Simulated assay, not measured.
Amino acid sequence: MTLQHLDDQIEAIRAEAGKQRNAYNDHRRFLQESPNLTPAGVEAELVPLEKSFRENMQALMAQETDLVAGAVRDLERRVYGTAGTSPDAVITFRDAQERAARLDTIEEARDAMSRAIRSKDTGLGQAILGRALEQGWRSVIDAYTQDNPQIAEAINDLATLTRFQRDDTQRLRASMIYL
């Protein structure tokens, strides 16, 4: 899945939310302006309408969240592969993850990535890449990408989606669309 395709799907979900919001507002206005309903009658009609609208918005927001999470999972599989099933592979994977998690600065990560690339330690390189994606350490991501050009697009897409998921402005924007 390309990011453009994902973006198109998100925009379609958000457009649907806009349509539902407009329909809700129109129906609400119609009820409030209806000469045939008392204030109690209007309220009785609005309660289930509002409940249904909130449920629909929550479902659309969940659909967007699931779509992005699924794209991240797919990209992670393309970038990282699997840890393996042998005891040695699992231990090596865990060790690399622990070592990468201890990297606190971009300088430490750059040095560790350079060593992993020089020694062709794929597992450690992938673990450091994961840490770099979490922290937004672009130069570390670029170092890995240069050594692995065959998956550069997937890595860059994963970096973009990781930033998107963590961006407070994007989360606020989505919340405003669906609330």
Rank of each mutant, 00 (worst) to 15 (best):
E134A: 06
D147T: 14
W137E: 07
I151V: 15
L158A: 00
R102V: 01
T105P: 03
E134P: 00
F164H: 13
I155N: 12
A101P: 00
Q126C: 05
T145G: 05
S114P: 01
G123W: 13
V140D: 04
N148T: 13
A159H: 07
I117Y: 09
I155L: 12
M113T: 05
T160Q: 08
R163D: 14
R118F: 13
G125W: 15
Q135E: 11
P149D: 12
G136T: 04
A132T: 06
R166Q: 12
L158W: 10
L103R: 06
E98G: 05
L133M: 04
A100N: 06
A100E: 07
L124T: 03
F164P: 00
E107W: 09
G123I: 13
L161P: 13
I117S: 05
A152F: 08
G125I: 02
D111F: 07
R110T: 13
Q135N: 08
T145L: 03
E108V: 02
D157A: 15
A152E: 11
V140P: 03
I106T: 14
E107G: 04
N156Y: 15
L158G: 00
R131E: 06
R138I: 12
Q135S: 04
L161Y: 13
D111H: 04
D121T: 02
L129H: 07
T105I: 06
I155T: 09
R118Y: 14
A154C: 03
R99L: 08
